[in-house]
Write a protein that binds this DNA or RNA. Structure first.
Lengths: 72, 72
DNA sequence: ATATAAAGAGCCGTATGATGCACTATACAG
DNA sequence: CTGTATAGTGCATCATACGGCTCTTTATAT
């Protein structure tokens, strides 16, 4: 997943759960400023930050093999 | 995946491909020092760093739903 | 028009990630 | 033992992520 896709996934998931940035920031332990920056495509979050956000959204960061054959 | 699992995955993948840290650092564009720190479990890499490493190993960073039911 | 809620962005101090260099540790070959 | 390859670490510098505070923007409601 490219960076923009990751952001989109997080954002859509948050909105699907009807959680505001403010609430998500609180329950994830990530600063509101940091979350706002991330969702607006700015910056380069650390793995820890991404994990904290993903976690409370019921998601997790993972590594998977790229499908080299029928990928694109 | 927890942090240690991510590291383990990267490390095993690199060794499976018989690539040294030095080579991986060169082809991924990540500093050797940074890669060493990451694989030895130190620090908290940025998403960009993780993506660069995963990419040249034929892997990608992704977000997936946690299996809440039969997970643990 | 005013009020409220949510998101985005500027300013800015602090913490720390990224990196190079030099050194150490380990394993293995000779 | 020496030499080589690979991995890990201490130190120092620079860039930047984190986060609080404040202001703006946009949408919606009264």
């Amino acid at each position: 997943m490219h960076y923009t896709e990751l952001i989109k996934t997080i954002k859509e998931r948050r909105e699907m759960l009807q959680v505001t940035q403010e609430t998500l920031a609180e329950i994830s332990g990530v600063g509101l400023r940091t979350l706002k920056q991330f969702e607006s495509g700015k910056g380069n979050p650390t793995l820890l930050t991404l994990q904290k956000i993903a976690d409370v959204l019921g998601m997790e960061v993972s590594l998977r093999l790229k499908n080299l054959s029928g990928n694109k």
